[in-house]
């Protein structure tokens, strides 16, 4: 079971994780197109206060509040991979999950009336934010599922 962890002591708050997340979750997957010609959003956010910064994305909780809060069944926990997934076709944009998430890791996509969240870059061997972090602050962490 995997999730991304940020090592605060080397996170430099450059926000390149946000940039590349947005690219990876765009249609073109090309950076200039993704930013200038598409509307895509990153699913990771950097929290910053003074010199302390931390890149925060879905923790893929073992008991996910967001899944419990979801009124439409769009959010679910994949029993095999333990990844908390989001089925955008079912999302009704009620923002219940946004309120329920203790990490503020679910992002509102007002334009499409749905939420966005980290999917650990399905299909990629390593999530793009981990690969592109210039200071090796992001690591994929394995943990034992309940």
């Amino acid at each position: 079971m995997r999730r991304i962890r940020c090592r605060e002591e080397v996170c430099i708050g450059c926000r390149l994780c946000e940039v590349w997340c947005q690219v990876e979750h765009s249609k073109s997957k090309e950076i200039i197109n993704a930013f200038l010609r598409e509307t895509a959003f990153p699913r990771v956010r950097v929290e910053e206060r003074g010199p302390i910064s931390i890149s925060l994305q879905c923790r893929h909780c073992e008991e996910p509040n967001c899944v419990h809060a979801c009124i439409s069944g769009a959010l679910y926990r994949d029993l095999e991979t333990c990844v908390v997934k989001h089925d955008a076709s079912k999302c009704v944009g009620c923002w219940s999950c946004v309120l329920a998430c203790p990490y503020d890791a679910i992002i509102r996509d007002d334009a499409h009336n749905r939420v966005l969240k980290c999917d650990l870059c399905e299909g990629r061997e390593e999530p793009i934010c981990v690969e592109k972090c210039p200071n090796d602050a992001l690591i994929v962490e394995a943990y034992d599922a309940l």
Partner: peptide, 13 residues
């Protein structure tokens, strides 16, 4: 300007 995506990385660095 054709390449700048206004990600503000330069500003922060």
């Amino acid at each position: 300007e054709d390449r700048c995506i206004k990600c503000k990385v330069c500003e922060r660095q």
